[in-house]
Design a protein around this nucleic acid. Sequence first.
DNA 1: CTAGGGTTAG
Length: 597
Amino acid sequence: MQMPAPIRAPTFLSKRRFFEQKLADLQKCTDLNQLKQIHALIYKSNLHEDPFVAPKLISALSLCRKMELAVNVFDQVQSPNAHLCNTLIRAHIRNSEPGKAFEVFCEMRWSGILPDNYTYLFLLKACSGLKSVKMIHAHLEKYNFYSDLFVPNSLIDAYSKCGLMGVREAKMVFDVMEERDLVTYNSMISGLVKAGELKEAKKLFDEMPQKDRVSWNTILDGYVKSGDMVSAFELFEKMPSRDVVSWSTVIFGYAKTGDVEMAKVLFDNMPVKNLVTWTIMISGYAEKGLAREAIGLYGQMEKTKLQPDDGTFVSILSASAESGLLGLGKKVHRSITKSRPKCCTVVSNALIDMYCKCGSLNRAWSVFNEMESKDLVSWNAMIHGLAIHGHGQKALHLFNRMKREGFAPDKVTFIGVLSACSHAGLVKDGIRYFYSMESDYRIAPEIEHYGCVIDLLGRGGRLSEAFRVLHDMPFEPNVVIWGSLLGACRMHNDAKLAEEVLDQLVKLVPTDAGNFSMLSNIYAAAGDWGSVANARLRMRNTAGERPSGASSIELNDEFHEFKVMDTTHPKSDKIYEAIDGLNQHLRKIAYVPSLVV
DNA sequence: CTAGGGTTAG
């Protein structure tokens, strides 16, 4: 490895100017080795308190993720000014520590340093909820910080990220503004689009005095996110000019609505692709389960100069997880290991989730154990993975270890814990954990938690109790819950309750013939053939079709797909022979597979 | 130093 040439401060230039220039260069390309040298030289020259050098040093350090050093530089300055505080605030935001950014703000006010426009710009970026934006808004009103459009524009943007209530506030700010620019309109339109108020967004778009590509792309994104690809494509064709974002947005839309062929046609014909474009297309293939195409395209991307980033890895891993594409997930894992010595928490979490969903618990476990710093998501993903693969006890052990290591469980943790109890048949423990959510952790159970408890009771054969929980809970039961109860009726052959459940399911999804098939199976198990015939008649009369079952498996990077009664596979004779053998074996140990009618 | 596209646990 070649070491960079040592840096010497020339004597003919003022040292301050020299360091300023060097640090400015470092902002463009972060080089830790060079930065360390400059850091040392600055201290040697006693310039680390210089009001022009110190902010740039903090900024450069934060880009290299050396936050302890950045804070250290800040602490050594005797009397910091607003500019220096702003730099540290932004440094914390860059390293996804919005809480620390707010701490700096508090200290600043404590020591009497007056915040300026920039302070509020950065803080608005750090806000992650309506409350914090409102707090900043109050400050702005009190000290009247509206000398330029940057502050109100950022305020609209921050409010727009806070859901429906936030958009209302954003509109109020927008309405009272006497002067607006392009960014004002674009931020407001983006907020309306995010809130799903597409009509109002379009109205504003039509009204605005001038539009740029961001305006067009924002509306385009609105149509895409609402699934209206007809309007999206119409707009795409009408646009005065298209850039890589416009193309990527439309490709994303087609991929998400399932038309990957159309997405690929646009992908192949667009002038310039970037990392996001490739990510969208590869994830699109993966989400549809098209492993060969996704892997092929991933290989093609690796041949370009583009270096996949964390966003690319997370997106493709999540798509692999959804479709159970272990081969693709492993390929991405290999390229992560090749490209960086240590993988960050978010990417490791995505790996754990992918391996769990693809059934490779061993690999998930080793990623989990080798992580440098785990967060709540890591624990939740691993607990849930163990739970749904039948390792209920191990999942609960991990839950206890997580608490011992100082992590407070959240609502997602309890989904995993309750599933663990449900799958391991630990009915009593499950109920105990459910009650402890509120009493010990102050977490209000949501409909998913009730769903877990109903599933837990149903599987345990306590059907009437499950039914009572369903009636007493503060939510309207959804398809998932009724479905789980129907499954429990099948498991314990309760035809009477199944009829009741089915009536509810028909109201919610009248076209799902599969539910009648389940009912028919319950009657068949009881030998009530008249009711079987009746259920089958009702099944035929449903409007919808019963989707034909299919499954697939990856073996040595080959992809094999099977449909019902499929005989197209070259080894299908052998496969059916093996299935018969398995069935006979299962019957011997007293398990009767459900009758497929 | 303000705005747009891909992102983890149910």
